[in-house]
């Protein structure tokens, strides 16, 4: 007995051999974000009202720079994985769906690089 659907057979679409990679990456980034976001929000709350110099000094602290880069990577990876699922669920015009997902992925990469570059620039003074 074949486990493939009749439609899948007709279209010739087989397994992409990727299995649960997308699902697993969403969970792993979620787990990583639990401590990172609690740390980030607590830090921002503790520094509310601080001036420009104080913020830059904080970002430039090595531990903070590294944690911010880790948070940036996890946030944008998690966000684009999530938005991809939303688009796959609600956009039913094939080309529009593919275009929207591609746009989301490009934007996530661009925004992540912009954040990391800014953090590194501040850190290296």
């Amino acid at each position: 007995m074949s486990l493939r659907s009749p439609l899948g057979k007709v279209r010739g679409l087989g397994s992409a051999k990727e299995g649960v990679i997308h699902w697993w990456a969403q969970r792993m980034t979620a787990v990583a974000l639990i401590p990172l976001l609690i740390w980030f929000v607590a830090s921002i709350a503790a520094m509310a009202g601080a001036d420009y110099g104080a913020f830059r000094e904080w970002i430039a602290t090595p531990v903070v720079s590294v944690l911010l880069v880790l948070m940036t990577i996890a946030v944008f990876h998690h966000a684009q994985l999530g938005l991809q699922v939303v688009l796959e669920d609600y956009v039913h015009t094939e080309w529009l769906k593919i275009a929207a997902i591609a746009l989301v992925k490009f934007a996530a990469i661009g925004l992540a690089i912009a954040s990391i570059f800014s953090i590194v620039k501040i850190a290296l003074g």
């Binding site: 966000a79 912009a114 800014s118 501040i122």
Partner: peptide, 13 residues
Amino acid sequence: GTLLLVFWLIAAA
């Protein structure tokens, strides 16, 4: 909301 976070970091830099 990540847009604001990114703008904030770029502005700081």
